[in-house]
Simulated scan of single mutants.
Amino acid sequence: MAPKEIDDVCEVQCFDDEKVNRLKPYAAESAGVAKIFKALADDTRAKIIHILSLDEELCVHDISSIIGSSIANTSHHLRLLHNMGLTKYRKEGKMVFYSLDDDHVRHLIAAGVEHAKEQK
């Protein structure tokens, strides 16, 4: 059995020098973008980011209740998001309140939620 031919690949090796040279520097601009999307690719973290994008700040217990996850799991994801620089927290006595630390992420999650609604 012969392998299936792939039609979506150029059959000759050639490229447009002008376009390559003009656009190549832009490739470096995407450094760090995958990290943000990796954080958002997890359903629990996406829920947390979305909820935090709608309110100023929430405590760990409230976030846990809203997303329907355990406090331990919620805390784990909040810690990861904080380490990625996407959330910040403040401590008030024995309470810890989280909020978004990056407005760009607020826009990304809003666009993602809007897109998901359109797909239904």
Rank of each mutant, 00 (worst) to 15 (best):
Glu18Ser: 06
Lys19Ser: 07
Val20Gln: 08
Arg22Trp: 05
Leu23Glu: 14
Lys24Arg: 11
Pro25Ile: 02
Ala27Trp: 01
Ala34Met: 11
Ala34Ser: 14
Lys35Val: 14
Phe37Lys: 06
Lys38Tyr: 07
Lys38Cys: 02
Lys38Gln: 08
Lys38Asp: 09
Lys38Gly: 05
Ala41Glu: 06
Ala41Tyr: 10
Thr44Leu: 00
Arg45Lys: 14
Lys47Ile: 02
Ile48Trp: 05
Ile49His: 04
Ile49Arg: 04
His50Glu: 10
Leu52Met: 07
Leu52Ile: 06
Ser53Lys: 03
Glu57Cys: 09
Leu58Asn: 02
Cys59His: 08
Cys59Glu: 04
Val60Cys: 12
His61Asp: 14
Ser64Cys: 01
Ser64Gly: 06
Ser70Ile: 00
Ile71Thr: 11
Ile71Met: 07
Asn73Met: 07
Thr74Met: 05
Thr74Lys: 03
Ser75Asn: 07
Ser75Ala: 15
His76Gln: 12
His77Leu: 07
Leu78Arg: 04
Leu78Thr: 00
Leu81Thr: 12
Leu81Ser: 01
His82Gly: 09
Asn83Ala: 10
Gly85Ser: 08
Gly85Asn: 02
Gly85Phe: 11
Leu86Trp: 03
Thr87Ser: 12
Arg90Glu: 14
Lys91Trp: 01
Gly93Ser: 10
Lys94Cys: 03
Lys94Asn: 14
Lys94Val: 13
Val96Phe: 07
Val96Ser: 13
Ser99Ile: 05
Ser99Glu: 13
His107Cys: 11
Ala110Lys: 12
Ala110Cys: 00
